[in-house]
Design a protein around this nucleic acid. Sequence first.
DNA 1: TATGAATGAGGATTCATTCAT
DNA 2: GATGAATGAATCCTCATTCAT
Lengths: 205, 205, 205, 205
Amino acid sequence: MEKSPRVLGRPRHDEKAKPTQEVVLLTATNLFIKKGYKNVSMDDVARACNVTKATIYYYYPTKGDLYTSSLVGMMERIRFHIEQILNLPNPFKERLEQLVEVHLSATVDIDMKNFMREATMNLSESQLKKVHASETAMYETIERSMQLEMDRGTIRQGNAQFFAHTFMVLMSVGYFKDGEGISLFQTSREAAKEITDFFWRSIEN
Amino acid sequence: MEKSPRVLGRPRHDEKAKPTQEVVLLTATNLFIKKGYKNVSMDDVARACNVTKATIYYYYPTKGDLYTSSLVGMMERIRFHIEQILNLPNPFKERLEQLVEVHLSATVDIDMKNFMREATMNLSESQLKKVHASETAMYETIERSMQLEMDRGTIRQGNAQFFAHTFMVLMSVGYFKDGEGISLFQTSREAAKEITDFFWRSIEN
Amino acid sequence: MEKSPRVLGRPRHDEKAKPTQEVVLLTATNLFIKKGYKNVSMDDVARACNVTKATIYYYYPTKGDLYTSSLVGMMERIRFHIEQILNLPNPFKERLEQLVEVHLSATVDIDMKNFMREATMNLSESQLKKVHASETAMYETIERSMQLEMDRGTIRQGNAQFFAHTFMVLMSVGYFKDGEGISLFQTSREAAKEITDFFWRSIEN
Amino acid sequence: MEKSPRVLGRPRHDEKAKPTQEVVLLTATNLFIKKGYKNVSMDDVARACNVTKATIYYYYPTKGDLYTSSLVGMMERIRFHIEQILNLPNPFKERLEQLVEVHLSATVDIDMKNFMREATMNLSESQLKKVHASETAMYETIERSMQLEMDRGTIRQGNAQFFAHTFMVLMSVGYFKDGEGISLFQTSREAAKEITDFFWRSIEN
DNA sequence: TATGAATGAGGATTCATTCAT
DNA sequence: GATGAATGAATCCTCATTCAT
């Protein structure tokens, strides 16, 4: 039996079907983002995944672990995204603007403060530690860029960590909707422009 | 775990005691701020007030109503506070700084975005409407000041509503704590200074 | 101070206003008829009467007592009604028909079996006894008429009590509505005719 | 009051034991018949089944659903029973009598009007629809027989649906008990005879 | 790998009733 | 007479978790 480059015969299940564990994690992440930790039950996740609760427990021993994995995964993806954009060769201001726009375009309000709050409230020490690590890593990615640009003299001297945080919260202004569901901006394009401009005024040299 | 031997019926009126309804509201507000809507049970509130759950339901027909009243009350107090400070005769920047400092000193992280999210997720249409009204009123108080200072030429022209929102989210940076519980600033005095400075750079003329 | 036949001055409240106790009883009766014992709370009654719960308890020491009074009152009124109609000089069949029609016209389904069941399930011994007494009195009124007409030879010999009961349950057929809310008869006039005719075939001589 | 030391998780499968879902339904049905919807709590059902409330909710998502299933099941069984008896080759009157007797012998007072009332009062639209469907099916089974016998000339022409309903309510007379718990008849045998005789006089040709 | 069946601990809400005023 | 304020016991339902298969 030589090894053929493609398995012979029809694969048992859908070749393209993502492994269950991944499906669960992605589905859960979306639910958590949309509704928050306490408003998502393991039953909800199971239903949304078309598997049983027990299956979820097979992969994630507690709801807290699932949440932890969701947050960590999400933050890692965001961090990766941020890194990619910030490593582009464009001028710094342009990169920031792009960052904001990409972020705001991602349908839902990804509010770090929120996630961290729910984490603090509901996770165990060890779970929380993992989440915090990811959070820190995420912020540090921005910080490094800020520091770099400071060193380059593109932006004024200042506390890079503080800058990273202000940048992140300013982004969240783009998500605001009033009682009638009306945003402060017409498009995320415009939002990105305004927000970056606002931020830039504070950090430019 | 001692059970207080409370009796049925209307208790003899204690002159100096605060009316129960108020006690309930205040206690609930604190709990909600500290732990969030879903992490506070009516039992928790009752216990913290040293009354029975039924007593709470006597004043607030549902948990959602209690939350609504808490939020509305809180926002109204904040709005009043903001108004008072912004109406002082000091230079605008000073008033803003004062505002930030007072806010940050208020024990806990009062994060509007958080409250609004929990509200959206858990309240009924009509309850949500009330909350939104208070929120709007709060922001408008700041907006009016911003607009006034624009007209006076103290700050640059711009979208006053946007400014109000950026101001509020920037404040929340003062609350940030990392995994070790370490804040970005040593004191709220310093936080206020840095945050206001940052904000001011963006809006000064 | 001679006693004047009419009190001088304006009576304190609305002269015509029914005494509270009566209002409570009538209101409660209607609610109980419409929704049944367990589906009517003392709060419901209070609200419907525009008084407080405590007021109701002032007149009726328990919900069971209120229900008892309601049932007894209702049955007494029905008994009185029945007696009046059965004492008319018309032919017996006509009187029966009239009875059915009047009963069916009274808006709601007054189903004795139902009331008695709820009574059995929810009242105390002594309360139940009162209700049973009224029920018996009610049936006996019909029985007496039946017996009289048997003696007169208008209807065939038989168990008068049995006849009274069959008569009552046959009436309830007039109330039947199917899933679409459609009755077996177009009008209560027609219902009365059909039901009486059916009954009469069984008891005529 | 001994708490059975039941364990978490799936119990080892007992071959001969009836499936839990069925046990729950049967137990609930009995309770509902005996005490009515509102007088049976989910706790009662759970206790009677020796399972936990959660188990019941595992099979029946709401109390209303459990009631619906109970009623539907019951009516279906009755309908089946009725059909069997009415399809026997005996003369129609005999079959009716047998029907009454069998029915009256079935321990408890199964009063359709009662169940339907509680259903109307407590079930959701969709639940109620199911119940109504079963009810209609049940009555239609009797109707068909009535119609058949009309066509055969065994009984007089008339509204078969009306006949079906009068038949059912007349049966309920057999259940009547006065304040002392005394029935109108000595035996269900006798009750069946009297009731059928009464009914027959009205419908015979 | 995955599931079906079950649990225990809450959690929101209702309700009859009480009692000082 | 009537009420406002409070209670305790239920009641319906949810949910994270467990475990034999």
